[in-house]
């Protein structure tokens, strides 16, 4: 059985652990053996984005030590995968031994929907859902990893689901980590428009693959449109696959 190492982002660990659990269940259902290194914490993205690279470097090294030997690392977050794939090699460019390890790791790190569709070759999970679904193209998944078709394939193959187009689905929701807190007026205008476009799409469910966007869009909807739902794709799929027993 193929073993895959789960890289659960800190946002999921602390605020959205259901997504972590759904990731685990999905991978198991796909016939792979998901493992979780308990020594993992955070990938270091907040420090990199704030310019504190000395601190980020140490966190990157910790991450590389924890995940260094794994054949495949899979995460339900595109931006954290981008951190590992693109920022680690930049951070460690002046330490050749670490750089080699970082570059090696970069090639083995995947976003969840990308791993399911591109590596496992599965695009139909046998899921059922009745309703209209829209998809938000998170920045780091779309432009960072070039992943867009993969999650859409998984959604369109859900039986009974009606995949609807959402205006400006590829435009940022206004999260941006520290940005959402430091520039609340601009961030609000952005997330407000995202949610208006979601509502206008006629969908009754918005799916995405990025915990940061989920906190932002979900937080805005919870405050302003509590009847509108937004979910992480992993959790949605896991819920929408009929239970076949024997699952832990």
């Amino acid at each position: 059985m193929k073993t895959v190492s789960m890289f659960i982002p800190c946002t999921v660990d602390l605020f959205l652990p259901d997504i972590g659990e759904a990731t685990y269940q999905l991978l198991k259902r796909l016939g792979v053996n998901p493992v979780y290194h308990e020594e993992q914490t955070c990938c270091g993205q907040p420090a990199i984005n704030a310019g504190y690279i000395k601190q980020a470097k140490e966190v990157a090294k910790h991450f590389i030590e924890v995940f260094g030997e794994d054949g495949a690392i899979v995460s339900p977050s595109g931006s954290c995968v981008c951190t590992v794939k693109f920022h680690y090699p930049e951070l460690l460019c002046d330490e050749p031994a670490w750089l080699a390890r970082a570059e090696d790791l970069a090639g083995r790190t995947y976003e969840l929907s990308q791993y399911i569709v591109d590596v496992l070759g599965v695009s139909d999970l046998g899921a059922f859902y009745t309703g209209k679904i829209a998809y938000h193209e998170s920045c780091h998944i779309l432009r960072g990893l070039g992943v867009s078709e993969q999650p859409k394939k998984l959604i369109t193959n859900v039986k009974g689901a009606d995949f609807v187009a959402m205006k400006f689905s590829e435009i940022c929701c206004g999260f941006g980590g520290e940005f959402a807190n430091n520039y609340p007026d601009i961030s609000e205008a952005m997330v407000k428009e995202k949610c208006e476009n979601y509502i206008q799409s006629g969908a009754d469910l918005l799916l995405l693959c990025e915990p940061g966007c989920l906190l932002n869009i979900g937080g805005y909807l919870s405050r302003n449109h509590p009847d509108k739902k937004v979910m992480h794709l992993a959790q949605f799929l896991n819920d929408a696959i009929p239970f076949r027993g024997k699952e832990n």
Binding site: D13, F15, P17, E21, P184, K192, R223
Partner: peptide
């Protein structure tokens, strides 16, 4: 406070993924 001006936040999980694992 910038975050909460227009957004809620899920409470920190009673059990983190670490704890659930």
């Amino acid at each position: 406070e910038g975050w909460f001006r227009t957004r809620n936040l899920p409470a920190m999980a009673r059990k983190t993924f670490h704890e659930r694992w």
